[in-house]
């Protein structure tokens, strides 16, 4: 075999480490710095006394977090509102999961033709790009403000989110593996339920639970906007309408408690499935 004499690699005379993404990042950061400086210099601080402002901030924080209370509402009312928020999150997650599962099979490249998968994925990306709250507001134009608009809006965004998560989980089973079962005369649904699903259930559960956490948080925010009479609505009223910071503090603690419980459940779930696999 003949050895080919290799020419030494020639470097461009001026080698710059400033790649395109880095240049863009620098420009953006520089721009933001300039805007910040401009804003600080031209800020209208008339009427603001830092010392008294700090002390009322401290006072408000003290009321909120050290003296929480039910305010003009009752415990049972607030707890019921909290359950409403949890239910809202749960309902929209379950509905979203059901729809998403079937749509995801059309969006998985190893099950569906490429044109269908791409179309669905693009549509879902579009829906996801618009925040949940906006979908709720869009639906409340059609259905009126209230719980229905909240449910439909939350479900809608959940579907788009879960279709992406589920279809990517489904795609973890290679197309050749699915073809191997087709080659032995197995129909479509048995392949889905006996081959694909059992191997991805931990992933599906994980994603669904994460979406439940998101939906609970969204339900609180959406409740205020859509007037769904849930804990978000009372938080909004207490903070922006009655200025009752005792109640604001209590509601924040209630939400925190739910978040901690959800986190514990999610850790347990994942631990359980990790052990199984």
């Amino acid at each position: 075999m003949k050895t080919v004499k290799q020419a030494p690699i020639s470097l461009p005379p001026k080698l710059s480490l400033l790649t395109r993404p880095r240049r863009i990042l620098r420009t953006v950061l520089g721009g933001l710095t300039l805007i910040t400086l401009y804003a600080l210099l031209t800020l209208n601080t008339a009427g603001l006394k830092i010392s008294s402002a700090m002390s009322s901030l401290g006072n408000n924080l003290n009321i909120m977090f050290l003296h929480p209370g039910v305010g003009q509402d009752t415990w049972s009312l607030l707890l019921r509102a909290l359950v409403t928020s949890i239910s809202l999150g749960l309902l929209t997650t379950i509905l979203g999961a059901l729809f998403a599962f079937f749509i995801a099979m059309g969006a998985a490249r190893n099950l569906a033709p490429a044109w269908l998968a791409n179309t669905i994925k693009a549509a879902m990306a579009f829906i996801r790009a618009i925040p949940t709250i906006l979908w709720v507001l869009i639906y409340s134009v059609v259905m009126g403000l209230g719980a229905s608009a909240a449910v439909v809006g939350l479900t809608f965004h959940s579907i788009a989110y879960l279709v992406k998560a589920y279809s990517e989980s489904i795609e973890a089973t290679p197309a050749e593996t699915i073809e191997a079962l087709k080659a032995s005369g197995v129909r479509f649904w048995p392949i889905v339920f006996q081959a694909i699903l059992p191997s991805i259930i931990p992933a599906l559960l994980s994603w669904t639970f994460i979406r439940f956490e998101i939906n609970f948080a969204n339900a609180v925010a959406v409740g205020a906007a859509a007037g769904a009479n849930d804990i978000g609505y009372y938080l909004f009223m207490a903070s922006g309408f009655y200025f009752n910071f005792h109640e604001v503090g209590l509601i924040v603690y209630l939400l925190l408690a739910v978040a901690v419980v959800l986190e514990i459940i999610s850790i347990q779930l994942r631990g359980h499935y990790l052990k199984q696999n």
Partner: peptide, 27 residues
């Protein structure tokens, strides 16, 4: 081309799926 996360036994049983109705196969 086996289903990696499933057990050897489950993969072998897949050889029977083609002989089953859609319903029995699904379950």
């Amino acid at each position: 081309n086996l289903i990696g996360p499933l057990t050897a036994l489950e993969n072998v049983l897949h050889g029977r799926l083609g002989a089953k109705s859609t319903f029995a196969g699904m379950l």
